[in-house]
Design a protein around this nucleic acid. Sequence first.
DNA 1: GACCTGCTGCGGACTG
Length: 723
Amino acid sequence: MPYQLLSEPIRRYIRDKRWESLRPIQGAAIQHILSSDSNFILASRTASGKTEAAFLPILSKVDFRETGVQVLYISPLIALINDQFYRVEELCKNLDVKVTKWHGEANRTEKKKLVQKPEGIVLITPESIEAMLVNAPYSAKALFSNLKYIVIDEIHSFLGTDRGIHLKSLLARLGAVNKTSFRIVGLSATIGDYSEAKKFTGDEVNTKVLLDRSSREMTTCFRYFESDTQELPLEMVKDLYTQTWNHKVLIFPNSRGRAEEIAVKLLKISQRVGGHPNYFSHHSSVDKEVREYVEHFAKHNRRHNFCISCTSTLELGIDIGSVDKVVQVDATHSIASLIQRVGRSGRREGEKSQLLLYATDKWSLLQSLACWLLYKEGYIEPFRTAEKPYDLFLHQALSTVKERSGCTKDELIATMKSNYAFSEIEDQAMQDILDELIRQDWLEQVHRELIIGVEGERMVNSREFYSVFKTEPSFKVVNAGKPIGEIPLTPQVMEDENILLAARIWKIRFVDFKTKKIEVVPAVDGKKPLFLGGGGTVDAKVREKMLEILYADAQYPELDEEGLDKLAELRKDFAIFPLRDFAKERPVLVKDGQIIFYTFTGTRINRSLAFLLNRLDLKHVYDEQSSSFILSINHDLLQELFEQLSLFIEDVDFHLQHALEDNASLLDFSKWGLMLPLQYKGNILEERFYDFKGVNILLSNMLFVSNNTVSLLRSADKLANPH
DNA sequence: GACCTGCTGCGGACTG
């Protein structure tokens, strides 16, 4: 019995709580964590008690009388730390264990106290670990050199991302200052690739996955309302109102502008028909206090219905109470994201989740359906972890030099080589990058010591140094001294224009460029705000599923009549291509001297294909949503074109470097890549932004089936592989 | 038409 294995204070906690039984993931975690010294990944659906699953055995096992922080909990969000703080403190109530929040908005006095007397449990963000290593390496050592466990919450949010590589490097650096090695426990509801999650601990062999596959029952319904303007169809908004007015709802419309449009329009309808006033918007551009108010409202009210129109800010972790309906407007970019969003409803025991999926366009409907079917099949897209993150190496090398107040180049390289986040980076590359940093005055060689250079000081001492992701500059929006939120400066932002923000309509009175403030007053009608920024990338498997649906006979009872009609229409459009093998064949529409080439593949491959067509100077129209390319060439020349593109792939390094010289903004995805030697800039672009291997496979293995002939085009098999 | 995440140290004003 897992319960019997726990220490007495922890058993007392469970008795006091009157829990009838432990959840499956908790039972498994207690048995395994208490009986072995492995690292663990705990994978189980949202609201299944993962935090307790990790902490019940850890609190039973660890001797908190030792000095130094014993357990470090790492979270991707401040809001999640604040939420978990109460739960962890509650878990510790029968133990004499101090719990401390450590992030940019946490109480400084508490942090100071902890430095004077390092003990207990600390809840922290990756950026705060970075800041501590750089600014106060002695405190970092005093606090974190006797760690027994590191718990990483929402670990999937780090996998395959730059922030994840950063965290991996920080874990390696913490490992280096610890007397004995610590164990890592990662928590997540959505993991597609367990081997990636295991590698994250730096010790794949010694990391075990505890998995509870059970899911909650759910009813799903698709609704189709075609939109031919920028705005959502009025009928759709009305339908959305009737579907949600008497529920506690989260609506995910994929963009901040849309989130505002929906919140404002629903509120208008509600005011007209005398419904409830609790319509909110929640995303990164809404003021923090407004967001906290909304979260608090959702969490603490039981009687009132509400409706929050939001982006991925409400996708992770934070428990916002009882939501009984989740609405997704147009397809999610990933299945992982769909799972997280679905998991936001029916968090109370015995509750059924309800999912409503709107589509405003046929391709969006098809993608939405594909994501839903893949989700039911248990597929989650795998992550691509960068093997050679030269830009993050550069950042961490600077950080390490600053942490040590200087060291020799050999010492630095030895340290970086022992860091498992950079184990695939070649010695020569490390030398080249450090030499470039010296040339650019970011590092300076004084006798045998490397120290931070004049230019480097500015970077290392700026607030921006602690994170590895970029953010857009924005203006504060203020009404009568009260902050509403922040928006980027787009052409739309000028005096007398109306905007939507925080679920209200505003007129811009004054834009102050000096203090970066926008003064607004309430208004009655306005446009949704424009936001900059890139979207997500769609996995190739989703597109393959879309193709499969087009050629299947299956009918989907979840679809409404309009959705079924639209699907039938799409199927009819594609029936002209005699496709048989969906793994190997793709449609090509020949029409009026043009061809439309449907790749049905992931965003990265499409993006790479577009890059190659640009290098070839071939005019084309690339549409990501339908995964297609319109080319004004004769259909007979297609094979020749593919051969040409494949030749370009052989020289892709050359083309990437040339493209970078013409257009430096290609590297916008990387915050710390700007100082890399050109060759390595090309490398990170190739590895993290494009997928030329995928293009090669597409061009060389696929059969392209056109509508007017039965002739099959096969591009040459003999194409050389660039790698 | 397309998301999100985090952040130090110091000086000065103010409060108890």
